[in-house]
């Protein structure tokens, strides 16, 4: 590959960086919303449990709603987990590979992910469309129009699909331009150095959290 060509690819890849930054910000906010949904459903279930015990009443569908909140929150957290490289990889061999081979494996992993997510998102849409067409209402007293929770769930998967697509493209461009460091930063299994850096940051948070009671 000629130098100029690799430079052009590198430039094209860098052009995608703002998109990835945006994806990260969206992913982070989606996680906050997902967590808030979870907390809200915990509150609802607690209210349900309390009034059931005290007054023999029921909010009606608290468990159902928390199931939806769970599905939606998790789907919305997929992009964040991907960008923070939380997906578990069996790295027994990987970590002993030369940098170039490891970078290729990183791209292969992302492509495999892209295949899976494409199929998942494609047929998740069938679920939403099916519920919409049938006018499906959940089989409970709540009678929730199923397209609503399923649609929000699908939205998370669609976001996951878009994030995967951008990340795969960016990683491929970086690999083709020979920029192994970027491949590693975007898609590599987490290294010892990164671990150490993050651990330090984590330690600081903890210290801030518990300083007043820390034993000497």
């Amino acid at each position: 590959m000629t130098g100029s060509r690799s430079q052009a690819l590198g430039a094209a890849g860098r052009w995608l960086d703002p998109v990835l930054t945006l994806a990260d910000r969206v992913g982070l906010r989606a996680v906050w919303i997902g967590g808030a949904l979870l907390l809200a459903s915990a509150s609802l279930v607690s209210i349900d449990v309390t009034i059931r015990k005290l007054f023999g009443l029921s909010v009606g569908g608290a468990d159902e709603i928390s199931g939806y909140a769970f599905a939606i929150g998790v789907a919305w957290a997929f992009p964040f987990a991907l960008l923070r490289r939380a997906n578990v990889r069996i790295d027994a061999l990987y970590q002993h590979m030369p940098a170039r081979v490891a970078a290729i494996l990183d791209l292969v992993a992302l492509i495999a992910l892209a295949v899976f997510v494409t199929v998942l998102t494609r047929y998740a849409w069938e679920v939403v469309a099916g519920s919409w067409n049938l006018g499906a209402l959940s089989n409970s007293q709540l009678k929730m129009p199923l397209w609503i929770p399923q649609g929000l769930w699908f939205l998370g998967l669609a976001l996951f699909f878009a994030t995967t697509a951008v990340l795969t493209l960016r990683t491929a461009l970086a690999l083709l331009s020979g920029d192994l460091a970027t491949v590693r930063a975007l898609a590599g299994a987490r290294s010892i150095e990164e671990e150490a850096a993050d651990e330090a940051a984590y330690g600081k948070t903890l210290a801030a959290g518990a300083s007043e009671t820390r034993a000497p």
Binding site: V31, V74, A77, F80, A81
Partner: peptide
């Protein structure tokens, strides 16, 4: 809370994808 959500949702997403 935001930090707690980040940690929780990241772990849960990973488990649920599996």
């Amino acid at each position: 809370l935001k930090e707690a959500f980040e940690g929780t949702m990241k772990s849960t997403a990973m488990v649920m994808l599996i």
